[in-house]
Design a protein around this nucleic acid. Sequence first.
RNA 1: UGACCCGUGGUCGAAUUGGCAAGACGUCGGGUUCUGACCCCGAAGGUUCUAGGUUCGAGUCCUAGCGGGUCAACCA
Length: 734
Amino acid sequence: MSASHFIRQLVDDDLRSGRHTQVRTRFPPEPNGHLHIGHAKAICINFGIAAEFSGTTTLRMDDTNPTKEDTSYVDGIARDVAWLGFEWVALTHASDAFDTMYAWAEHLVEHGHAYVCHQTEDEMRATRGTVTVPGTASPWRDRPWAESLTELRAMRDGLRAEGSATLRARIDMAAHNMKLRDPPLYRIRKVDHHRTGDRWCIYPMYDYAHPISDALEGITHSLCTLEFDNNRALYDWVIEHCPVPCRPRQTEYARLNIGFTMMSKRRLLALVEEKHVTGWDDPRMPTLAGFRRRGVRPEAIRAFCERVGVARADNLVDADLLEATIRDDLEPIAPRYLAVVDPVVLEVTNWPDADRPSFSAPLWPDKPEPRRDVPFGRRLLVERSDVRATPEVGFHRLSPRAVVRLRHAFVVTCDAVETDADGRITRVLCTADLASRGAPVKAKGTVHWVAEHAAVAMRARLVERLFTVERPDLEEDFRSVLRPLSLGETTVMGEPALAALPAGSHAQFERVGFFVADAVDSTPGAPVFNRVVALRDNSRPAAAAAERTPATTTPAAPVAPPPPLPPVAAAWVANGATDGDARALAHDATTEARARALVAAGAPARAAAAAAVHVLADVPSPPPNATLVTWLARQADGTLSARAARAVLDHLVAKGGDVDDAIDALGLRQLRDPAAVMPFVADVLGAHPDRVSAYRGGKTGLFGFFVGQVIARSGGRADPAVVADLIKRQLDAS
RNA sequence: UGACCCGUGGUCGAAUUGGCAAGACGUCGGGUUCUGACCCCGAAGGUUCUAGGUUCGAGUCCUAGCGGGUCAACCA
């Protein structure tokens, strides 16, 4: 069972409350590029939520802008979603609904909710105002609706030039939310659409088309990323003013960001077009096509999306988390092989060159079958990085006098490490313990190898991160932080069994990493390998450890002097209100008026202020002030606990009447006699023996739990102070 | 600068809606091992951004401040 998040809860609530009987979601990409890992999160959320609640999801191409979109991307998108493992109930297009959208545009015009505007793009921008200054109305804002309708039809019929007219919603040019300042709904684009051809020369904007598409598809939960938060008001406006068959609701969550990864479609396109990568499916790309090519399985992507969770806070996920998830996915499924990336010759001096046997070895550790044969001989190739002429401390691989296991073969003793004039290792000489194969002989370390006579040279790409910095998206020019040679194309020497792997096969090159036989470049008998991800390296030589110490700089918290009290607040403070309450009153005139009325009716200023701010603010039509004054007095004299006071208030709001009658009707007179409270305490303590002992064992945080339970059990009547005192005595006793 | 959204161990994130600050990844230590992988055990790591307020009780509610983000395309 996966961890819950706020969207799951929302959907669950809607189902429980009967607001919906089924869940329908949609994944609405614009077909103007390829899907990336950020979209994967959206896909997992939309399809995942629907699947969890036995609902359905449509895959919708959001194709409202014919100048940017292209059919060629549609197939790629559909393929990627399917690859991730999700099934759509229907593949739809925003353009499917162009007729309805247009009809409802006329509907809006006829009801005075939209008008045709002839401002130029620049004029519209200028009159929209800014975030601080309101916009000014278009001269066409109040023209007769019939005139707008005629103009709209003229636009539709191609009688108006591009840029000469738009259909605008008539909402509020002074709205704080800029999206509401009479946003364009339709613009003229005299270009063919990839699906509707030349049928239309006007096209709906996203903010208009999206809610209609949702409504027409019966979407219950329209899930999108946080940057559409401001658009929700417009979404709701469209739903409100069009004759929609149902009313979907939009909910936003934070988009995915990953370290060392660039997610912008536009810049991804630049990488491709400027040939910094080999294509959309370059194994370094964060596109789904790229991950697939690199050998990452959809299971890993889905697990990753589950691990990062869903919330509304901005985030930057460690690139390590993605790599760890990929390893976890491949670990149990990838068969093991031996391959050497940077070979150096090792000679087993007590092994005759003519003797070239094959040793059978299992493909998985801990599993005896299946197996493959690994050729052996006098001359082997081992990893250069596994050899040292003079080892550092903690190095337990090949160095003079070291005893090392050759994986699946013998334990050898290193006799000599030969180097050339530059100190570069040229040859390693060893003596094998001929009785050690398959025997429990201890060695300092284990090393992978291939027999020189049987080694197969294979192309491999030691794929590395594309960028050298964690936030390439923050760079003025991402090109300056591209890692050179990140594709890492090289030749590796592998055991013969590797050559037989078909394209798409995963393998672990032991001690090197997880690889996949490239689906494109591999040929039968000659696979080309991509490194999916390197193995985790837990080695910790002293030098590396020092290098690893994180340099975290915590910015000093700025100390701000408290701002001056507004005059209104100062007056309240002078009369006894607390500082915070006074500020709150100054902040909201309605609340302040309410508090003042209470004081006029005879309530103490402090209590009146507190009640107005903390309780009455949520009450639309409170009881008469005289009643409230009594209500406050009952709290002051201890008749009513704070908790009970709210219940009484609810009762007064609903039924009216006298405070004391309400208290009696509800039975909420506060219990202050310890003898009356004690039974509740005993009940609670008796019901939770485990927690009682936990508390006595030191988990004192449970105290609040006990108090809460007792008060709840008493129906809110028990005096908290009495309860606390009794519990303390009981728990500290014995 | 205005409105809105958001601040919980290094990272991502739970917290039964006001009552015991989960979990994962990472880090550190140990065990196991014919992969320095995997696996197993253990530990550290928190003033829940800050300051006030309400409350018996605040990560949760209120106010202010600080910090981050979004919005001012006839893009989506």
